[in-house]
Design a protein around this nucleic acid. Structure first.
Lengths: 350, 350
DNA sequence: AGGCGGACAGAAAACGATTACTGCTCAAAA
DNA sequence: TTTTGAGCAGTAATCGTTTTCTGTCCGCCT
């Protein structure tokens, strides 16, 4: 009773060979007569047998779990994605390994290496690393990657993403339609693909409306190492808002690269007596659950994060089964404007 | 080049036996001469060797990863805890498996079983299950558990928790000190230990102040299945606030069982034209990062979540190394009041 | 009747590491 | 010189599955 039952015990109790037992328990495709199946399953149940996944992984040369490697979970947006992934994986008998890179490339490397050791074959990655060399290296060793909201320069990648450019465009258009003529762009460092895309969308919209792009209206909030626990967004938002005020409120609206950033911005504005949206409009991005509950409720662009997660997991599963769908980043979810209360027409000329 | 290098290859290249290679690479305690060590390490590096963790787990009968099983990650509070855990684990060469039970006992069972199959030996658990039978079962099979903010009835558990009772007491005392005489208690279903503790703390405080406890002032918000993606708290908070208003605002202050719940409550109050804190004070619990950035900033009780996570992970590691610290739930972190803006003295008698 | 093939089941060889043994060498002790 | 033992390295068994390769049995076709 001290020892776990092995497949040997099951086979013995069922009166069959281990091979047969293994086939019943782990290989649905191999033909086994119904009677034998019953005997084996009965024995397994009686012994309360569970497979030893280490042994299985060793033999099959691949484990059945999938890792999610992301910069930081502090952003609720990633949470949503995670929920989607988790759900799909659990229903497919896979476990989910979670790695936080904290936006640190070195940490990301360590994670990948560790995952490789652990025989993990599938990684859903939202990389912080510019160069694709590391990914390429492990891909060469047989790991499968699904890129999350990101495109690597090599263009070999399978991935799923949001059309951030169109999203930012949509957001900016909305601000313009409300009558804003000077619109600031608040972002974290534009090292991530999705952020440069958004920046492009922002400029696209300005251009179409024949507004001049003013470099001074781009606020790039540096993450503060101190903010590790609460995530970089809130702090960056606060700093951006302060800079914005210091500059004498040079715009009537601010487009933020995500909702958390927007919340940081709004809070600091309110604290300084600037009303949102009456004095300054602030637009978010992502539509996290909180957006609707914040006061003022955030006008934002919805990123279907749970769905994205689901999709990513499904793509991963397919990829692991070598059902290579050749969707090189062709998966693109469409943006959708969500109008709430943080945006209004600009104040009358003073 | 197609094949991964194994320890055999390393041994061969280094000109030693596999046993020696294994000892250099995986067993720091065994004495190996410096020269041999060098040769082996050199060879390993040259071949870009990484151990096959499946094989290792098989042989050692235990994997080196730790699972975190929690009801839902949507609550930022758990995120913080996760960060702490993740950090400790990564630095100890362990991976973290994450399982979301969605507050569903059945799902929790499935997770545990899957983890058992995967040879996971350590589980940090925030269970949704009342009875300890399942945990007991797996403990019998050699799994180690660290309970997170929870005590099982069996009292065998090692765990770490927060003194929620004292925390709630502290919070209630603060409200009383501000002059409140009727204080509502807003909670999710009190199935979790920590919530019943808080309830006790709330009553303790009322009693000490010789205020009558009124059952009608306890609002238990039922989670809505629809809320799976954004977590149960926000929705429950909104529903509680509506019930509170419908009842004709029967208290001047509301103590919420966590910050997200408080945010849900406040939002609905504000939306209905009730000012916070001028008309009604709302007190949170946990002190999530957002608490400080919300408007009004939440007066709350700080739960040192990251530290808790760190501790839990360390306890797990110790436990796995059989350095059984006999701390049956003796680890208790102390509460701390954080005064911000969502609480004020009650309005003058009308 | 003989041959053929499909449907099952078993024996045994991997998978890649760890670790009990065993054995060798060499210095110090007797 | 012999004995002892510490220090180091090698042999080979082992962990629990999966899977390839062989059969065996049985029914059906010619």
């Amino acid at each position: 009773m001290g020892k776990k039952p092995t497949i040997r015990d099951v086979a013995q109790l069922a009166g069959v060979s281990v091979a047969t037992a293994s086939r019943v328990l782990g290989n649905p495709d191999y033909p086994v007569s119904a009677r034998t199946q019953q005997k084996v399953r009965g024995a397994a149940a009686a012994l309360d047998y569970v497979v030893n996944d280490a042994a299985r992984s060793l033999r099959r040369e691949a484990s059945r779990d999938v890792a999610l490697v992301i910069p930081n979970v502090s952003n609720p947006f990633y949470l949503q994605t995670m929920l989607g992934i988790d759900d799909v994986l659990l229903n497919n008998g896979c476990s989910m390994l979670l790695c936080n890179t904290m936006g640190d490339a070195d940490r990301e490397h360590r994670c990948l290496r560790q995952l490789y050791e652990r025989q993990v074959r599938g990684v859903i990655l939202s990389s912080v690393d510019e160069n694709a060399a590391v990914v390429e290296k492990y891909r060469g060793k047989g790991m499968k990657f699904v890129m999350l909201d990101q495109r690597l320069t090599d263009d070999e990648s399978v991935g799923i993403g949001f059309d951030s450019r169109a999203g930012a465009r949509l957001a900016t258009d909305h601000l313009i339609a409300q009558g804003h003529r000077s619109i600031a762009f608040a972002t974290l460092p534009r090292t991530r693909w999705t952020r440069t895309e958004m920046f492009k969308g922002y400029r696209d919209a300005l251009m179409s409306a024949e507004l001049v792009f003013d470099e001074a209206l781009v606020y790039e909030g540096l993450p503060d190492p101190e903010d590790e626990r609460r995530g970089p967004e809130l702090g960056a938002g606060q700093r951006i808002a302060r800079a914005f005020l210091r500059a004498g409120r040079p715009a009537t609206a601010i487009l933020c690269v995500n909702d958390m950033l927007a919340i940081g911005v709004i809070q600091t504005l309110l604290e300084s007596g600037v009303r949102v949206p009456q004095d300054v409009s602030v637009m978010g991005f992502d539509d996290i659950p909180l957006a609707e509950v914040y006061v003022p409720a955030l006008t934002t662009v919805r990123y279907p994060a749970v769905e994205t997660g689901r999709m990513a997991a499904l793509m991963m599963l397919d990829s692991l089964n070598n059902r290579e769908l050749d969707l090189r980043f062709s998966m693109r979810l469409n943006p959708q404007l969500v109008v709430r209360q943080s945006v209004a027409p600009p104040p009358k000329e003073k």
